[in-house]
């Protein structure tokens, strides 16, 4: 399994996937900083960090996961590389499991980058606009904990997008699912059931009601694990053209 994951990581060299993983959290950091300078966010560190994380989880995370899973799947679909991979003397499930591991690693890496970029954006905004000083101090543990819960909650969303991206040779179905899911998430934000909508679950890490937030994150985490297992079973039996 380690070999299959290493092979997946080697494929990322000089790829658009890595560029996406750098660009997505950077854009959130830049946007958060600009909003602070424009005085459109609250003026203490905790609210600034939470608002920036919300920007990420609500819109950028689902769209980035959509693009990321499509890019990773198209590496095999595009040149019809499945023919080569699946003819190798390696258990087929390992290729699909390795894809899932790599997506999770990349999303975790983006979350980690965001944990650094958000405070950095705050500091840079403060330096560029001296009148926009953030009050208090950033609770690093709470900040990292929030992003970690968002990551756990995003597992179901990641699993669904990856399954769609690997199952369909065309990138259109996973793209439609990703855009549709993100759009519905905007509409479903206020509803009770919306808490369990995969594209909205990561945002529940910010829920005012901690019990609801914890339940939603658990649904995202364990739902994601279950969907990844189902995905591997399904793809293992499929024929790839």
């Amino acid at each position: 399994m380690i070999v299959a994951v290493t092979a997946e990581l080697l494929k990322l060299r000089r790829s658009l996937t890595l560029l996406l993983c750098i660009a997505a959290p950077t854009m959130v950091g830049v946007l958060a900083g600009v909003m602070l300078i424009e005085h459109k966010t609250a003026s203490n560190w905790q609210t600034f960090a939470a608002g920036s994380a919300a920007l990420w989880s609500f819109f950028m995370l689902p769209m980035t996961v959509t693009a990321l899973t499509i890019l990773l799947a198209q590496m095999e679909h595009g040149p019809r590389f499945w023919n080569h991979l699946l003819a190798l003397p390696v258990p087929r499930w390992r290729f699909f499991a390795a894809k899932a591991v790599v997506v999770l690693l990349l999303v975790a890496a983006m979350m980690a980058a965001l944990a650094l970029l958000i405070p950095l954006a705050g500091r840079i905004a403060e330096a560029l606009a001296p009148g926009r000083q953030l009050s208090g101090t950033l609770d690093v543990r709470a900040h990292v904990g929030l992003l970690a819960r968002m990551f756990e909650g995003s597992l179901l969303l990641i699993a669904i997008q990856l399954w769609a991206a690997l199952r369909f040779r065309s990138f259109v179905p996973p793209l439609v699912i990703g855009i549709g899911g993100t759009f519905v998430a905007v509409v479903a934000t206020g509803s009770r059931q919306g808490a369990y909508f995969p594209w909205l679950i990561p945002t529940n890490a910010l829920a005012a009601d901690p019990a609801r937030g914890q339940l939603a994150i658990a649904v995202g985490l364990w739902g994601g694990v279950a969907v990844i297992a189902l995905m591997i079973l399904d793809l293992n039996r499929r024929t790839f053209d």
Binding site: L10, K11, R13, R14, P79, F81, N83, H84, L85, V90
Partner: peptide
Amino acid sequence: ELPSHYDHLTGRQNLDISRLL
């Protein structure tokens, strides 16, 4: 069918992935 390769990688890097597997 078609010769399938990762176009963004070099020939050696393409072979390296299969070698590893």
